[in-house]
Amino acid sequence: MLEVSGLIKRFGGFTAVSNVSFQVGQGEILGLIGPNGSGKSTIFNMLSGTLAPTAGTIRFLGHEIGGLPPYRIINQGIGRTFQIPRPFKRLSIFENVALAGYYGQGQPSRTKAYDAAERALSLVGLPIDRNTMIGGLGAAGLKKLELAKALATQPRLLLADESLGGLDEHEMDQAADMLRRIRAELGITIIWVEHIMGVLMRVVDRVMVLDHGEKIAEGLPSEVSADPRVIEVYLGTDATAVQAAAAERQ
């Protein structure tokens, strides 16, 4: 579904992403992990059009999308959430999602956008009335809103950026279940960037590990969490716990 090859992003003399290639198959959940500054968000920004790649190709459903503006990439079926939720505070919860439903689907009828918004809001469990403002939403609520916005664009591939930061354990499990449901019920392929390894390892099909902009490992959660290089640069003393989580994977 998504084929990335030789992806490079330089900012001046600094290479944030260096020659990264990977593929994501239809219906897969790929986990993308790595220390801070390893290039995860930069890859996401290139996949979603916020940044243009310096070199390399990004093919989605057979079309090259590298360097296209965000709105065109969304209209081709790639939705994203932001690491830090970026709601529109002057719009109501419903309007936030309806906006994404309208523009993210290439401006269909208003009814279609509203339908998409209602479906996305019910799926994530937020109120679907037209006027509730976002002021009272906590961290978990804002993450849900972020997800609903991305879902309302009717993506075929969802880029979920560190969706669990700031949540308690119960909320994390709920969110992980949500991603599973999104794939199971809507058939959406997911790339998930996440810091909290335990939860990620239980959900994803495959993991890719980045360090200093380079891919250092890729494979099943159990393989990757046992990889000495990954343990060295990233997992460190948590390795045992993460390996246990990977073993628990359903």
């Binding site: 979603s48 059009g49 916020t50 503006p69 965000p70 709105y71 969304i74 209209n75 994203r80 932001f82 970026r86 709601p87 529109f88 505070k89 002057r90 719009l91 309007e95 936030n96 309806a98 906006l99 994404a100 309208y102 523009y103 993210g104 689907q105 290439g106 401006q107 208003r110 956008a113 916005k149 664009t153």
Partner: peptide, 22 residues
């Protein structure tokens, strides 16, 4: 819907772009 889009742009252009707004 343009009003929603412009409200969104006024708050956060990148997030508006990520919602599909040109």
């Amino acid at each position: 819907m343009i009003a929603y889009a412009l409200e969104a742009i006024a708050e956060d252009e990148d997030a508006a772009g990520a919602a599909g707004v040109n």
